[in-house]
Design a protein around this nucleic acid. Structure first.
Length: 478
RNA sequence: GCCCCCGUCGUCUAGCCAGGCCUAGGACACCGGCCUUUCACGCCGGCGACACGGGUUCGAAUCCCGUCGGGGGCACCA
């Protein structure tokens, strides 16, 4: 039984990179019929906040990712918050003490910093020298009596090579001399990340660790801990990281990179899911627009590309447009659009929103575009654009609008067909056609020279508002 | 500085592991055309890449080596 996990730190919004990692874990679990657990890595007390955890969970759910075990749903291997597992960690630290895998190190941060600098200057990897590795019991006793603080370090075997098969990278081989004895327990008694991850993953029976490539160099340290504790090592899969346009790791300075930001910017979750899955993975066929189910069915972790990927905003936007105009059901789409309509101050009932969405869905890429595109359906006292004014300042243009008003002023209802009939009549009577005919009417009704289909607009906003807008234009340009 | 990972159109990628089917396929973006009362949508077309240099081979995007380039990591952060 495959068991994977997603283990974010609640230190901010759900980042695109993390979201992608979560997504691949989820897809892999579903594809293999396995389970996925959500674990909150909140050992960094300074930065971790409960509200961030809630937002993380909210964003994950919005994306369409569900988990079988986690802090909110519980599970066989609870608790799922690292801050609630300190007793467990203590127990395993004891084991390492007993087996002699870790030792006390009294070096001060200043001394270590000094060592690091020196090593770098001499072209050696900046690693701990192993100074306290062989302190005699007497020396240790003395230092402790002096009240000197200490950390516990892992005794890394000299010159050993750690080799593991990464599902994405292939065989990875690292000489442990590169990092030297690393810290397991801080001077305040708290265990360090590399240690708790191993304990948690092992105890939670995680079989596949799928995470970002930035963890690749942590892996040998973790493997050492797995072995020291007698745990079975899981399989590893390191996902290529996501880069910004400048080819550095995607971060806040690349603009909106949180799932929340995209959600707020009018992206729909299905497009996000699809788009994120396409970052480093590609379906067999040419069709890239795939549902969650299709992705799950086709996904294979070994097909993940192994080079870092620059995040393509334009493509995600295009994908979002595809979902808006082709994939989502109109009622569903309308429901999701409501907060946006309201946010723009466009007030109406659901039926009206639906008509508007029907009219504009083909021309928007995000729900944010509703502001511009739906404006004519809601705003009556608009400004006339400079380009637009020309059509009404024109004699023929004004005449067309005048005539149009004559024809509708006694109507108490208007449909698309009525509108077409009327414009046809005007064309016959005046000989004006094409742009010369439609533009003045468009400008009179919307103030702009481009936008939604006028016949549709007229039908949706209704005869009274049409009359009002035409009269207004006639007065304005008369 | 050291270690590790990576290198196909501007971007995401297919092909690479099992060399000929590749005059390298698709998608986004861009450009042009068509459709259309406008803008969009849609449709059609175009532009555009195997980083470089050596091998191996009858034959290399595919295998090997080197160079260059990019990225990640080197914490008492996760």
């Amino acid at each position: 039984m495959v068991r994977v996990r997603f283990a974010p730190s609640p230190t901010g919004y759900l980042h695109l990179g993390n979201a992608r990692t979560a997504l691949f874990n989820y897809i892999y679990a579903k594809h293999t019929g396995g389970k996925i657990v959500l674990r909150i890595e909140d050992t960094d007390r300074e930065r971790s906040k409960k509200e961030y955890e809630d937002m993380l969970i909210d964003d994950l759910k919005w994306l369409g990712i569900e988990w079988d075990e986690g802090p909110d749903v519980g599970g066989e291997y609870a608790p799922y918050r690292q801050s609630e597992r300190t007793e467990i960690y203590k127990e395993y630290v004891e084991k390492l003490k007993e087996s002699g895998h870790i030792y006390k190190c009294f070096c001060t941060p200043e001394e270590l910093e000094e060592e690091r600098k020196k090593a770098m200057a001499e072209g050696r990897p900046p690693r701990y020298s192993g100074k306290c590795r062989n302190l005699s019991p007497e020396e240790i006793k003395k230092l402790e009596e002096e009240g000197k603080p200490y950390v516990w370090r892992f005794r890394v075997p000299d010159g050993e090579y750690i080799v593991f098969e990464d599902l994405i990278k292939g065989t990875v081989e690292i000489n442990v001399d590169e990092f030297g004895d690393f810290v397991i327990v801080r001077s305040d008694g708290s265990p360090v990340y590399n240690f708790v991850v191993v304990v948690d993953d092992a105890l939670m029976k995680i079989t596949h660790v799928i995470r970002g490539e930035d963890h690749l160099s942590n892996t040998p340290k973790q493997i050492l801990i797995y072995r020291a504790l007698g745990f079975q090592e899981p399989k590893f899969a390191h996902l290529p990281i996501i880069l910004g346009e400048d080819r550095s790791k995607l971060s806040k300075r690349h603009g909106a990179v949180s799932v929340r930001a995209f959600r707020d910017d009018g992206y729909v979750s299905e497009a996000m899911f699809n788009g994120l899955a396409l970052l480093g993975w590609h379906p067999k066929g040419d069709n890239e627009v795939l549902s969650k189910e299709e992705i799950i069915a086709e996904f294979d972790i070994e097909d993940v590309h192994n080079a870092p990927a620059v995040f393509d905003r334009a493509k995600l936007k295009w994908l979002n447009g595809v979902y808006i105009r082709e994939k989502l059901d109109i009622d569903d789409l309308t429901r999701r659009a409501v907060p946006f309509f309201e946010g723009f101050g466009y007030r109406a009932d659901l039926e009206y929103y639906k008509k508007v969405m029907k009219a504009i869905r083909d021309s928007i890429e995000t729900l944010m575009d509703i502001e511009e595109r739906a404006k004519p359906f809601f705003v009556d006292d608009f400004h006339y654009s400079e380009d637009g004014k020309k059509f009404l300042e024109d004699e023929n243009g004004y005449k067309v609008v005048q005539l149009f008003y004559e024809k509708i002023k006694d109507m108490d209802d208007i449909t698309k067909e009525d509108f077409k009939k009327i414009t046809k009549e005007i064309q016959k009577e005046t000989g004006i056609k094409g742009k010369g005919l439609f533009m003045p009417i468009r400008v009179a009704l919307t103030g702009e020279t481009s936008g939604v289909d006028i016949a549709t607009l007229v039908e949706v906003i209704g005869i009274e508002r049409v009359k009002h807008r035409i009269k207004r234009a006639l007065e304005y340009f008369g």
